[in-house]
Design a protein around this nucleic acid. Structure first.
Lengths: 343, 343
DNA sequence: ATTATTTATGCAATCGATTGCACAAACTAA
DNA sequence: TTAGTTTGTGCAATCGATTGCATAAATAAT
């Protein structure tokens, strides 16, 4: 059949009457190898169609050139864009990314991390599951001296680098924008505020109100799962109770979408009767009618940043690096759903 | 510091006064090991917190438990859902998935495949880039005896398993539905029809027209990149030329969305004046106004199928398997953009 | 010309698990 | 009892590349 036998450094060595050590060094650009030998090795390598066996290299050197990447959901635009960002940086440095998803289930998260360690990844980039309460599995990663970078969903329990966007600022911008548009009775959709990011968004919302001298009304805050259905039911409940409100700031685009549907079903005009803002800038937000104002988290850039933090930690070697926390600034993308006054 | 030194089978062996061979066999369930020894090994392994080094195992056994997965774009719902599907199956079998994206650039595709081979993946699952014309890199995969499964974007040039949906059927269903809604002057958005899937959709469109006795009008077929902007410009050109049409069947949801925007901008009612159907059932399709009728490709199921084909090929070992082609049946998801008559 | 230094390469162990073959002990059959 | 099996382990090579240490050859210093 075909030439299935792969060529190794030994084949190259034999052909050139040198040893495998020399070939290895030549290929790795070791300065102790003479220019002539190096050239000969490279030439022969090409001729024999040599391709390094990364597994063998990994075993000996301890570096697999693999990054384990853990996300709650791979098929959500926000996360897949982050993966994309990480990958762009990683691939350019000849690293590969293994992806796993937790589906927000703690056991999956734990298993994925273990599987990564068994696969001997050089480090892990992860976003924590919604229901994760303890972090031993991540702690183990750190104890092995492997780089660990957390993004978006992080925890103060772990002493490690992380990248988040300024959720507070995003919420503050959104709420302020609504106020500037003349709204004052602003509803907020959030979720049980255990996770930092939702806490921060809530804080941004309340502070913006306060800074503009608007009295906060707790009955306008709804807590749920931030899915489409939650947005729908919150809005229905607003209507049924004849609540007086002129804007909704939702911590999620999906819930905002649910609100938009119910508002339209009830003949309310957006943004004239109720202005609407979501969070995350999901791809669909520009396709709704009216297009949905949202907060862009720059997921691809977040991926880039996560990767850079990762390689920083990786290259600093054994010497402990001070964990770095990068906070990206979000951007309010103003669209029709909140723009009452033509600028 | 911490106990950084990982325990190996040698540590277990030493503690039990047996050899590493025995430990290895015990851990792998080799029947030649006595029940007692096996139990002792497992117990000690647990005590010492042993975790197998997959790299060492991979080097010796030649199996890395890694699948290379290549997609054009990871942050597109269709592809990320397929990845999700593959992953679900792979992880349950203790395989990991390395993901790379080609961004439709041939060089990237080639490099990614090479990188996979260097990483010694056990096989590859891929969707071919739009502009890929030759397939040597994939041929090499096959020549090495590695499983290769193609999904969605495939080619007859490669003798290997593949999974696609019945694009013909999807387009036929869509077009027929429009006809049943009373439309007869049906526009089609497509792309240069080199890639099988678009050819098939075109064929489904024309055959449906024919079967319903409608004369095909070539001037109603627009070829472009199927992005939002393409949909917009095609539709504008229709309007400017005062074309007589009552429906659009787009081979992509994005182009359909572009059409929807322009139609609405021109005061046309959807579906009364123009009915509209897309393809892919992107998440946003249910959020547009009116919601966009589309063709569901069942991406997660496609991922499952791809994975199953992969493991079939993998487990059949050296003996050549007959490549299998699985064709999934699509489903027309009827939404407001095409539903003229209330059912 | 002799010693010291640099340069280029080889030697051999190593990473950790797997596996074909050998072999002792225990058991069965004749 | 002796030969023939079966059962359970050990031995040692192997996968392919890396790397600390040794060393021969070439060059520089005295």
């Amino acid at each position: 059949m075909e030439n299935l036998k792969k060529t190794t450094i030994h084949d190259i060595a034999e052909k050139l009457n040198v040893t495998a050590s020399t070939v290895s060094r030549a290929l790795n650009g070791n300065p102790r190898i003479s220019e002539n030998t190096r050239k000969a090795v490279l030439k022969t390598a090409r001729e024999l169609n040599y391709e390094p066996n990364q597994i063998a290299s990994a075993l000996r050197s301890g570096r697999t050139q693999l990054i384990g990447m853990l996300v709650p959901n791979i098929n959500r635009a926000f996360f897949s864009s982050i993966i994309r960002g990480v990958e762009e940086v990683a691939n350019s440095l000849n690293y590969r990314v293994i992806v796993s998803q937790s589906n927000e289930v703690f056991d999956n998260e734990e298993n994925a991390v273990k599987a990564f360690l068994n696969a001997r990844v050089d480090g892990i980039i992860a976003s924590i599951g919604k229901n994760t309460q303890h972090f031993d599995h991540y702690q183990q990663v750190l104890e092995r001296g492997l780089p660990l970078v957390l993004f978006d969903r992080t925890t103060p329990s772990l002493q490690t680098s992380q990248v988040v966007i300024d959720d507070y600022q995003g919420a503050y911008l959104a709420t302020s924008h609504l106020i500037e548009q003349g709204c004052s009775k602003i509803v907020h959709f959030t979720t049980e505020r255990k996770i930092a990011i939702y806490k921060e968004r809530y804080r941004g919302y309340t502070n913006a109100l306060e800074d503009h001298g608007i009295q906060m009304d707790e009955t306008l805050v709804f807590s749920g799962n931030l899915q489409l259905e939650d947005g729908r039911s919150h809005t229905k409940s607003l209507m049924e109770n004849n609540k007086d409100f002129d804007a909704i700031f939702s911590a999620s685009d999906y819930a905002a979408m649910g609100a938009m549907q119910v508002l339209k079903e009830n003949g309310l005009k957006i943004p004239e009767d109720v202005a609407l803002i979501g969070f995350l800038n999901e791809p669909f937000t520009s396709f709704t009618d009216p297009p949905l104002t949202s907060v862009n988290q720059f997921p691809i850039e977040m991926g880039h940043t996560a990767a850079h933090l990762f390689f920083n930690a990786l290259n600093s070697g054994k010497k402990k690096v001070v964990p770095k926390k990068t906070v990206l600034q979000p951007e309010l993308i103003v669209r029709g759903s909140s723009l009452k006054r033509k600028l």
